[in-house]
């Protein structure tokens, strides 16, 4: 018995050490976010705040109405967008994973080129605003970035790991491709599907570029852009103080604000992860074949 347990204990020990390494910097960041700006300036960053203060967080929630709207928009786009992209990416990935699809090589290259080359910001911006009319609407959050070559490829790899016999038996039963995709492939790819959904959610959560370039309506700002504005306002105020030669500008939270924002943005996602984690347990894939 001892022989089997020892490696297990080792494994857990190693993991616990790793977890400490992973968590400590975030812990430090949280501690710093609870400091006062003047302490940071005088004493530099330290692990335990000399004066516990919520001043950085107060600035974030100062305009709670706008903050809530930003949360709303972000949650909406961060959930709908990955879901849509699952549809767009999953379908084409399935097609190119099937050997019977004669054009799969060409389509793969078609996708590959979009991964490597692009027109750049300006042509996209001109097209999106002037031709497609997406500027300053909710659609710009939902539609941009929907199809991603790397996600397609991840799906494809995952799909090709599914035993071929399953698909063949469904074929023989007369199922069409869409049904195979929906009822066999996707359920059996739960880990990668949830991984891509999660990544998509994070991407939507952290995104600010679309707000920055396309949105001027305050009600459509994403969370990160809203927070970015909070910081640049703080910076603006500090500079104004400096310009007028007044003292006191330095004490307006700026460094601590950056930390507070980092903490505030990551916590919701970290809280969400355990729900995704459900799909990440052993023994999912096995089973269908035995039937």
């Amino acid at each position: 018995m001892k022989k089997i347990k020892f490696p297990r204990v080792m494994l857990h020990t190693v993991f616990i050490i790793l977890c400490v390494i992973f968590i400590i910097p975030m812990f430090i960041a949280v501690m710093i976010s609870f400091s006062t700006e003047s302490d940071i300036i005088t004493y530099g960053y330290s692990i335990i705040p000399r004066n516990f203060s919520l001043e950085a967080y107060k600035i974030i929630i100062q305009d709670s109405a706008s903050l809530l709207k930003a949360y709303g928009i972000t949650i909406l786009s961060a959930t709908v967008s990955p879901f849509l992209s699952l549809i767009f990416n999953g379908t084409i990935a399935y097609s190119i994973s099937r050997p019977e699809f004669k054009a799969r090589k060409i389509v793969t290259i078609y996708i590959l080129i979009t991964m490597l080359f692009g027109g750049g910001l300006i042509p996209s911006y001109i097209l999106n605003t002037q031709v497609y009319g997406l500027g300053n609407t909710i659609w710009v959050h939902l539609i941009l970035g929907l199809v991603s070559g790397s996600n397609i490829i991840l799906f494809r790899v995952s799909f090709s790991q599914i035993p071929k016999s399953l698909i063949e038996s469904a074929d023989i039963d007369g199922a069409n491709q869409a049904q195979i995709l929906l009822h066999i492939i996707i359920p059996m790819s739960k880990p990668i599907v949830s991984m891509i959904f999660f990544t998509g959610f994070i991407g939507g959560w952290n995104s600010y570029a679309t707000s920055m370039y396309y949105i001027s309506d305050k009600n459509l700002y994403q969370l990160q852009y809203y927070l970015k504005n909070v910081i640049s306002n703080s910076e603006f105020i500090r500079q104004s103080f400096a310009e007028f030669g007044l003292k006191g500008g330095e004490d307006i939270p700026f460094q601590t604000l950056k930390f507070a924002i980092c903490v505030a943005s990551s916590l919701p996602i970290l809280m969400m992860f355990p729900y995704i984690q459900k799909f990440f347990s052993k023994g999912i894939a096995a089973g269908s074949l035995k039937e």
Binding site: I87, N89, I92, F117, G119, L181
Partner: peptide, 23 residues
């Protein structure tokens, strides 16, 4: 297979290939 791939193909055409002229 073509039908399944079509949404993404059209999307890439509109949003990825079309702006390439700007390169």
């Amino acid at each position: 297979y073509w039908l399944l791939a079509l949404p993404a193909i059209i999307y890439l055409l509109m949003f990825n290939y079309a702006p390439m002229f700007g390169a």
